[in-house]
Amino acid sequence: MSSVVASVLVVGGGTAGNTLTVLLRRAGVGVDLVEADPDWNVHGSGITLQGNALRVLREAGVWDRVRESGFGFDSVGITAPDGTVLHVQKDVRTGGDDLPATLGMPRPALQRILAEAVRGSGAGVRLGCTVASLDQDDTGVTAHLTDGTSGRYDLVVAADGLNSATRAMAGFPDRPEPTGMGIWRAAVPRPAGVERTDLAYGGPCFIAGYCPTGEDSLYAYLVEPARDRASLDPAGHAAEMRRLAAGYGGAWTAIREHVTDPAQVNYTWFHRLLVEGEWHRGRVVLAGDAAHCCPPTLAQGAAMSLEDVSVLAETLTTAGRDTPLGEVLTAYHRRRAGRVRTVVEASVQLGEWLLNGDREADVPGLMGRTMGVLCELP
């Protein structure tokens, strides 16, 4: 297979960076990956992966392990705060009929699977290390790393997340903006009978939801107005999540009993970001949360990042060797921009409707139109 690049530095060893590394290595491209976290990001509660995310993980050769480590399902329930089921909706299989509509799994499990795939690909990996500065010209990029070493590459991919330092280093002015919502998350044992995501709108929070992540595991979340995070004592996180969860019945009764360890509870804000214009500056290109992010109201954050790296790997490795790199990176952006904008804007709109208490909002219509777009290949 031809490729317009022979050597790539991937900055960021999360879901997007790891998957891109595997896809490029499968095409014979030389890849080094650097990740600032010495533990390689093996932390977090759970992750919801819709079919279009699973399709990319299958492309990267890890679907069998993901399937074994997670819990797949094909419907979503809407409940009253007391747990009464109001409606059950069949979910859209955005990855095709041969993949579940949705799969939940522990986020650390996904990270371990992808990290092992990166190691097995033969890519160079440096943990506890990232880019200190970049010098680029018409023929390549010299990356100076925080461990004092440097390397020369045809392309640098900024996959270092929402607050990407590489994005800023490359000259992009875009920064994430909070949307006004915050979310509590915790991993707990899965109560008997919970076999899908259920969402309760109303009660003490905007949303109370959970997603099964395995035969015996689940992650639960509560969405509320954003608070000043500096005022929240981490030692009280479990108690605060239990207090909010007390306003919900059904499976939440069992979930609440297991929210006891503050270290297993995290609180973060929702943000939005969509880098306008091209996603590359010379030989540095953005992917995943470094290029865009949105509230998880559609559970499409990971899927959009995974689609990015699938399209980026494809465009890099199928263009003719003599194709100018700038043209290839423009083609990547062109394929992603409209689809990503649709998801970001819909996700933000859903959040705004909740914040404003808009009871006339056409939530089913917006979600249906958006998921219809996502059934098409990116």
Results as ranks from 00 to 15, higher is better:
residue 62 V to L: 13
residue 60 A to K: 05
residue 46 G to R: 07
residue 97 D to I: 01
residue 115 A to M: 04
residue 51 G to Y: 03
residue 79 T to Y: 05
residue 75 S to A: 15
residue 112 R to L: 11
residue 95 G to Y: 01
residue 101 A to S: 15
residue 106 P to W: 03
residue 124 G to F: 03
residue 145 L to V: 05
residue 105 M to Q: 14
residue 83 G to A: 08
residue 130 T to Q: 09
residue 110 L to S: 04
residue 73 F to V: 04
residue 113 I to T: 08
residue 142 T to N: 02
residue 86 L to Y: 14
residue 88 V to A: 13
residue 62 V to P: 04
residue 117 A to Q: 01
residue 53 A to M: 07
residue 82 D to N: 15
residue 77 G to V: 15
residue 139 T to I: 01
residue 56 V to T: 13
residue 154 D to A: 02
residue 90 K to E: 15
residue 105 M to Y: 04
residue 41 N to W: 02
residue 139 T to Y: 02
residue 43 H to S: 10
residue 145 L to Y: 03
residue 57 L to F: 02
residue 118 V to K: 01
residue 58 R to H: 10
residue 143 A to I: 00
residue 86 L to I: 12
residue 74 D to G: 11
residue 93 R to P: 09
residue 133 S to T: 06
residue 113 I to K: 00
residue 122 G to E: 07
residue 82 D to P: 14
residue 84 T to L: 14
residue 45 S to M: 11
residue 130 T to V: 13
residue 45 S to P: 00
residue 78 I to R: 12
residue 120 G to P: 10
residue 88 V to N: 12
residue 107 R to G: 03
residue 117 A to C: 03
residue 86 L to N: 13
residue 118 V to N: 05
residue 88 V to L: 13
residue 96 G to Y: 14
residue 87 H to L: 13
residue 144 H to Q: 13
residue 137 D to W: 04
residue 101 A to R: 07
residue 65 R to A: 13
residue 42 V to Y: 01
residue 97 D to Q: 12
residue 121 S to F: 05
residue 119 R to D: 11
residue 55 R to N: 08
residue 51 G to K: 14
residue 54 L to I: 11
residue 105 M to I: 14
residue 91 D to G: 10
residue 80 A to K: 12
residue 57 L to S: 09
residue 120 G to E: 14
residue 148 G to P: 05
residue 106 P to S: 07
residue 130 T to Y: 05
residue 93 R to I: 03
residue 148 G to Y: 14
residue 74 D to M: 01
residue 140 G to D: 06
residue 149 T to W: 10
residue 136 Q to C: 01
residue 40 W to P: 00
residue 50 Q to S: 14
residue 143 A to P: 02
residue 75 S to D: 15
residue 90 K to F: 03
residue 108 P to R: 06
residue 44 G to M: 08
residue 67 R to V: 07
residue 88 V to I: 14
residue 144 H to M: 02
residue 89 Q to G: 01
residue 124 G to P: 03
residue 103 L to A: 10
residue 113 I to V: 12
residue 127 L to I: 11
residue 102 T to W: 09
residue 102 T to D: 10
residue 127 L to Q: 15
residue 114 L to K: 02
residue 55 R to C: 11
residue 128 G to F: 04
residue 139 T to K: 00
residue 91 D to Y: 05
residue 111 Q to W: 11
residue 53 A to P: 12
residue 138 D to F: 02
residue 117 A to Y: 03
residue 87 H to N: 06
residue 59 E to C: 06
residue 54 L to G: 09
residue 51 G to T: 12
residue 91 D to L: 11
residue 133 S to M: 02
residue 150 S to M: 08
